[in-house]
Simulated scan of single mutants.
Amino acid sequence: MSVPIACAVNGRDVAANVPATARLSDFLRDTLGLKGTHVACGDGVCGNCTVIVDGEAVRSCLTLAAQCDGRAIETVEGVAEADVFPAIRAAFLRHNALQCGYCTPGFVTTIAAMMRDNAREALTDAEIGSRISSVACRCTGYVSIVAAARALLGRSE
């Protein structure tokens, strides 16, 4: 059974018929061709598929595309076009917060959502760590990623 959805993806209106059980990650990757959303585990454990839905970081492999009818979705491609991306890129480079890059889209979208959160200045390192722990990285550990996020959130190092 297919269901019609209409949503905004990276600021562009999109309408499609999707299978009722289609995951948002599949809709983004297969239907819209947005391959930056990485799917590794498919079970919501790794967080590499994280996108922003109505301002909140969510795992797209656990979200049905049909649940996003009428909602605003931002993928890593959308963040790359946004005003926050140059700062994210610079902080990741300055703090050596990336290695192989597979998890990077999940971190970029998660941190972009944090940067837009009104309470961002109040986040401690533990809270930053808790939020980014939803994305699994096997290369860097999280110290450098927390440092990059801390810098992006306007916290002193």
Rank of each mutant, 00 (worst) to 15 (best):
G106Q: 06
I111E: 06
D125P: 13
L152Y: 05
G101Q: 08
G11A: 08
D54H: 13
I111V: 15
T104Y: 04
L32W: 07
S134R: 08
M115E: 12
S130G: 15
G154L: 06
I73K: 09
A40H: 04
P86K: 07
L24A: 07
G129N: 12
F92K: 09
G78T: 02
A149D: 12
G78E: 01
D54S: 14
T63C: 12
C61H: 11
L153M: 13
E121F: 14
A80T: 01
G33P: 02
A91K: 04
G106W: 05
A91F: 05
G11S: 08
D30R: 05
R12K: 15
R29Y: 13
S133G: 15
Y102D: 03
T109S: 13
S134E: 03
N96P: 00
N96F: 11
S133Q: 14
A20K: 12
R12G: 06
A149T: 15
G47F: 02
S133D: 14
A6K: 15
R59K: 15
D69A: 10
N48P: 00
V45M: 14
V9D: 00
I5A: 00
H95C: 13
R29L: 09
A122C: 11
P105W: 01
E77P: 03
R131F: 09
V135I: 13
D13H: 09
T31D: 15
R94Q: 15
I52D: 01
A149G: 07
C49N: 10
K35H: 14
D125G: 13
V14L: 04
T37G: 01
A22C: 14
V108D: 00
D125I: 15
L152F: 07
L32P: 00
K35G: 02
A112E: 05
A80C: 10
